[in-house]
Amino acid sequence: MVPSFAASTGPFAVTPDTELPVSEYGRVGDPPEVRALVAAAQAGDRSAFDDLVTRYHRAVFRTAMAALQRPEDADNTTQDAFVLAWRKISAFRGDSSFKTWLLTIVWRQALDRRRARARWWQRSTTVSRSDDPSDDGLDRLVSHEADPERHAAARHRVRQVRDAITRLSPKLRDTLLLASDGEYSYEEIAEMLGVPLGTVKWRVSEARKLVQQRCEQSKEKP
């Protein structure tokens, strides 16, 4: 059923003549207010772009975190991505939503930073992953058990899952982290990663399966 736009009013009213951007996977157009901000930013309005920064900087930061897993790197990458987006905003044609376009930029920047990072794997697996419970953050995931032994066991299982995710291949791990974040749809992830939608679904499924297998294997070990 085709939705009716006749009731839309206001400065950003969407009329039937107003075509929403259509991506490879369907309509992923931005809300009207975002489209107005983007149009103003393309015309050179910095305050409009500042509003876009306010709206999307959290999503951009979390995307960088999914690739880098280090807050300081994600912080720098987020800044670089917005600067690049401001410079390239005239090239945005609306083939996808502005959010997807922006996240694609930050994702590529994050991958560049990740490649340039020497011994990234060792550092990413050690940062903020100490055995000290106080700075681990895993307690938030463990339900409070009255029995200290059961609490420790639950915490151990969470640690096993985290280690299994960390040991996934980059493609599977990236896709799983993006999909689990809940910030993006599968279609947006597919556009960000530049892969078909089916590939995203397969990667998420494969990643979950591998994590489950590895957790089972570690459970069987004494």
Binding site: R58, R62, A66, T78, V161, I165, D181, R208
Partner: peptide, 13 residues
Amino acid sequence: IDRVARHLVDTEP
């Protein structure tokens, strides 16, 4: 698994 994966990127800016 999804909960732990979300925790890995669940960092506020």
